[in-house]
Design a protein around this nucleic acid. Sequence first.
DNA 1: TCGCTTGTTGATCATCTGATCACCAGAAAC
DNA 2: GTTTCTGGTGATCAGATGATCAACAAGCGA
Lengths: 203, 203
Amino acid sequence: MDGVVRPGRRLEPQARRDQILAGAVAYFAEVGLGGTTRDLAQRIGITQALLYRYFASKAELVEAVFERVFLDRLSPHWNAEIADRSRPLEERLRHFYRQYAAAIFTYEWMRIFMWAGLAGEALNQRYLSRVGDSLLAQLRDEIAAAGPYGAPDMEAMWALHGSIVYLGIRRFIYQLPTPDDVSPVIDESVDRFLAGIRRPQAG
Amino acid sequence: MDGVVRPGRRLEPQARRDQILAGAVAYFAEVGLGGTTRDLAQRIGITQALLYRYFASKAELVEAVFERVFLDRLSPHWNAEIADRSRPLEERLRHFYRQYAAAIFTYEWMRIFMWAGLAGEALNQRYLSRVGDSLLAQLRDEIAAAGPYGAPDMEAMWALHGSIVYLGIRRFIYQLPTPDDVSPVIDESVDRFLAGIRRPQAG
DNA sequence: TCGCTTGTTGATCATCTGATCACCAGAAAC
DNA sequence: GTTTCTGGTGATCAGATGATCAACAAGCGA
């Protein structure tokens, strides 16, 4: 029992702030950004007033939640790994999407991202623009350069992306049963995609 | 100007109820089910109290919104069309997903479905279970029976489904730019999927 | 043990929100 | 024009919610 402390227990400001933020991420992921400060405080095991010693307003707390959830979600290594032509394209694609899924297939990320998207948060659009302009565009270029495949357009890349992300949506948003291990499913989606754009073996 | 009436204007109960329901669908799609009855009433151009002449509570209004949005979204004809083996499989698949997209790619449906999903509504799960158990399973069987394709498992079918639905998610949830005409994009996703599971031409 | 610092609390405020009700007024019937 | 029915309104209530603040007490230093 780590997060549970008896009432009145004094914590170092940094520790308390972290505790609140972690609790807020879990709470808002579950009930949405419209969740109340009282419910959140009760779940953490502190009084509602204490929240306001560490965050000036609920909006600021939500902002901190976004920052923690969105920050460093896209690994800077991915671009280099995608472009590493010493490895077969198929392996790079599979590897990327296994990594990507490992990064975003969490209850907190998936749901807060979706809540924020519905709320019209600009962060979502910026994040997805980066996914498209940087990662997917690069994947497309690597596929085109690999030889045996016809050059896919961006909509094809988004379709591949969607086929994989939708697995996380089914699991964490709609809470439907999905395979415990997503790796083979992801590999098969990637393989099917590549097979689907393979050039006919003429000449 | 149809929906705009001057204050105090009397409407037939059915017309007023329809007006409120239509307004509620549009309003809740935009701001979520947590939207207030006052804002909704103001948008419709009536007083908040009037809502309660037609709906006993906000929960009942939301229920009516669900009913209107969810009802008859899955056409009963689709199953027969999918199974109509007098037409080529490829054409049936393309046709189905063009129809399906036409049915669900609306601002109201996409967003209310997602709000409801995040809120844990059982309707979503029932709807998606039907999509999987009835439509996707049948599509899978038809593909397997068609001959030139390897039998896809249900995860493969969900991947195809996701690759197409994600287009609507990008447009209506994240409000990112997407092609105006989705038909060619859908056709290409279907074609790519089938090409991806085509048996090697041996013997 | 005492005193000080400051993390924490309970009470409270203003506002928002769902819901109710007495009363008003549009329009059809005569 | 008058009456009658009922759709519509403004006022209001109770509870919820974000935010504030004076007072309390945990824990450290002397």
